[in-house]
Design a protein around this nucleic acid. Structure first.
Lengths: 140, 140
DNA sequence: CGGAATCCTACACGATACTG
DNA sequence: CAGTATCGTGTAGGATTCCG
């Protein structure tokens, strides 16, 4: 799931790597949930609403591999696995939360800017146009 | 190009949005280049090494739309277009640069963690490997 | 110079089913 | 409970060509 970035000029590859890590659809939310308390797999899945089991598994493994999350397996029955941020993970979580806070604080500004832009450009969306809303005529 | 994120639980959608914005392959690097000085299109393209014209165009438009970048068109001939961070863009760039600095500072730690993980799990499972950095072999 | 239009591929993610 | 396995889809992003 990680290798979204090919090469990039050597010097900034670490940047690309970490940003692709936290920039994917879910990872940053997972980290956010794991601040505060360790969580078990399904509990975490419940709290990160909408995430699929497959993606959660993959994301967690990437985080474990990079040393941000620790996976602790308790030999109980039924099995119980706990995920928690490592100290390294908490170091990452801190500047990350700053960015998240920025996002929350400025969500309305972004939305306003977007609305203004869309009004300016005549309502045409960036990228390709999808002006044809093909409504499927009938649904018997 | 931006709305990679579908719905997500309402409360954290702004987070997802902004993180998908800066988390894509290039946008954060573009913002980094625009700190310090405004740049023209092709100059920016040159400095963000490896980016395609199409993606640069799309990324810039998204940034303009969200209010982080300003596009200034000079009616010269040949045409000249300048991109610069807005004040809002600089606000975003700041926490972002913190994260980038974190990435640079801890690149070796991440790599070490990865190596340790791969050594730990490497001997046994033939399964598919994650996070393989595909080196593109040649840059003619 | 600064894009737009088009084609194409890889991969992130979702849905579903199965397992220890 | 905590995953693994597999298939299908959308789309980000690369390469190329063309335009004012």
């Amino acid at each position: 799931m990680k290798p979204r970035h090919g090469h990039i000029s050597e010097s900034c590859r670490p940047i690309s790597e970490i940003l692709s890590l936290i920039g994917d659809k879910w990872t940053s939310l997972i980290i956010g949930r794991l601040r505060g308390e360790p969580l078990r797999f399904n509990e975490l899945k419940r709290r990160v609403d909408g995430i699929s089991q497959k993606v959660l598994t993959a994301s967690l493994r990437a985080l474990v591999r990079d040393g941000f999350v620790e996976r602790i397996e308790y030999p109980t029955v039924p099995p119980s696995v706990e995920y928690r941020l490592t100290p390294f993970g908490h170091e990452l979580a801190e500047p990350l939360s700053v960015l998240q806070q920025f996002a929350l604080d400025n969500a309305s500004r972004m939305e306003a800017a977007r609305a203004a832009y869309d009004a300016r450009t005549g309502g045409e969306k960036p990228g390709q146009q999808k002006t044809q809303l093909i409504q499927p005529a009938t649904m018997p």
